[in-house]
Amino acid sequence: MSWHVIWDNAAWLLEGFWVTIQLTASAVSIGLFIALILSLLTLSTHRFYRWPAEAITFFFRGTPLLVQLFLVYHGSGQFRHELDAIGLWSYFREAYFCAVFVLALNTAAYSSEIFTGAIRSVDKNQIEAGRAVGMTSFILYRRIILPQALRIAWTGYSNEIIFIMQATSLVSIITVLDLTGVAGRIISKTFAIYEVYIAIALLYLVITYTMVFIFSRIEKRLNRHKA
């Protein structure tokens, strides 16, 4: 057993840890934005808006993340010249961009499902009351619907954030050196297989439960009026 491998490579592991955190943060923030748009489109009464949003959600929820990553990362190479012509190739060329792109869309699809459900469950009478006092749709959303929907959606959404943090480990397969990617490289140099995997498993546990702790504090805050 050679646990010293972990200390010897601590700096490198820390780098990977940062990449994991950054990936999660970018995917979640971009994904949140896309998810809200998808939810509003899904809730629209117009089929023309609803249908594309539902198709995107269905695709990203119905296929494995690994397939989506490979489809974008390796698949974009098949359309290199087309992407080059519209100036997008320099983005898709980077593995990191492909990773954020896919993770953001993936989490957006799952989150929008959560948000749609939450918005639907806001009391209809309140919306009618809001309309009756002359609120515009925008104000209605900002003042009445979204604050309540956020509270309803929070448990589900915070779980989704933890899911996507763990899912970032897959980007190591498309050459991004996140925590898992760095672990793979260390193993191929030192052959300390279980030492390294156990160490990063513990690191992921720490990240997960730190997030769980923070999210439950937020949940308490969101529900403080109920106590």
Partner: peptide, 11 residues
């Protein structure tokens, strides 16, 4: 639930 599937699989 605190460890990614990929890590568990490799482990």
């Amino acid at each position: 639930r605190g460890i990614p599937e990929l890590i568990l699989l490799l482990l």
